Simulated assay, not measured.
Amino acid sequence: MSSKVAKLVSAYRQHLTVPWQAGLAAIQRVIFAVYDKADELRLRANVEEFALATQQAGKQWLLLDLTNAFPEWMAAQEYRDAYFRRPSRLAGYQTSELSEFVADLTTQLKARIVTEAGPDTVVALMGVGTLFGVARVSSVVEGVKEAVEGRLLVFFPGEHHPENHTYRLLDARDGWNYLAVPLLATD
């Protein structure tokens, strides 16, 4: 296993040793596992280490992969062929239809969370980097966090800036201020 990913697993394992408080606000139950975008494949290859750490801590694990969420949603759209012929039309698509994508995605995620997760479950979101340029990760997190009774773990390829508590997806977009618990691959 890559040393950076191993360090992130170690930070996650250590975080799980702290007993879960009841009655926390939804934002206090969100964890961002922040890693370098270059480590995406390594993290994916070792995601079972996170599942194992979760199970060893006596918790349940539910992995939700968003990697294909947008292509699957787009394939179901009536006017998809027109957008594929002229992708520039997607610029106008940004406001209404893409907010529909986020709404549909959060509805699907919440349905799975409600039926498959309980108060001792870590719900892990993987593949959030594929939302870049399509939807904001913060919108998806905001849309599902209340449905998660246990903890919401977001595998986040990007940066965390502790001085102002901002996150930047893929180190490219302006960051947003979010009060989730950051896990970093540090010594």
Results as ranks from 00 to 15, higher is better:
Q28H: 13
T67S: 13
Q94M: 08
W73D: 09
E100A: 13
A75R: 08
A75W: 04
A22T: 10
R44D: 15
E40K: 01
V137H: 08
A25L: 14
D104W: 14
A45F: 03
T115L: 11
Q56L: 13
I31L: 10
E78M: 03
L43W: 03
T115W: 02
E116N: 06
A11N: 01
L90D: 09
P87N: 06
S88D: 14
N68P: 00
G118F: 05
L125I: 01
Y35A: 04
Q108G: 13
Y93L: 14
Q55W: 09
S139Y: 10
W61P: 00
A103P: 00
V128Y: 09
T121W: 03
E100D: 11
R80I: 07
A91E: 14
V9L: 07
T54V: 10
Y93R: 08
L125A: 11
S139L: 06
W61H: 04
V47L: 15
F84K: 07
V102C: 07
L8P: 00
T130H: 14
Y79W: 04
N68V: 09
Q108W: 11
E49I: 01
Y93K: 03
T95K: 08
Q94P: 00
R80K: 09
M74Q: 11
I27Y: 06
E78R: 07
D120K: 13
T115S: 15
R80H: 12
A26C: 04
M126V: 10
G92M: 05
T95F: 11
L66Q: 11
V30I: 05
A124N: 02
D36Y: 01
L98S: 04
T67I: 08
M74W: 12
I27M: 07
M74S: 10
G118P: 04
V141D: 03
L64D: 07
R85N: 13
L41V: 15
V34R: 04
I31R: 11
Y79T: 04
F50W: 08
Q28N: 12
S10H: 10
L41I: 14
E49W: 11
N46K: 02
H15C: 05
M126L: 14
A76D: 15
Q14M: 09
G92P: 02
D81C: 02
T115M: 08
R86Q: 14
A111K: 15
E48P: 00
R85S: 13
A11V: 02
L109W: 00
V137F: 05
T67H: 11
V30P: 05
A51K: 15
S10L: 10
A91D: 14
V141R: 06
E72T: 12
Y35V: 06
Y35T: 02
A51W: 05
V137M: 05
D104Y: 12
T107A: 15
V9I: 14
A135M: 00
V30K: 08
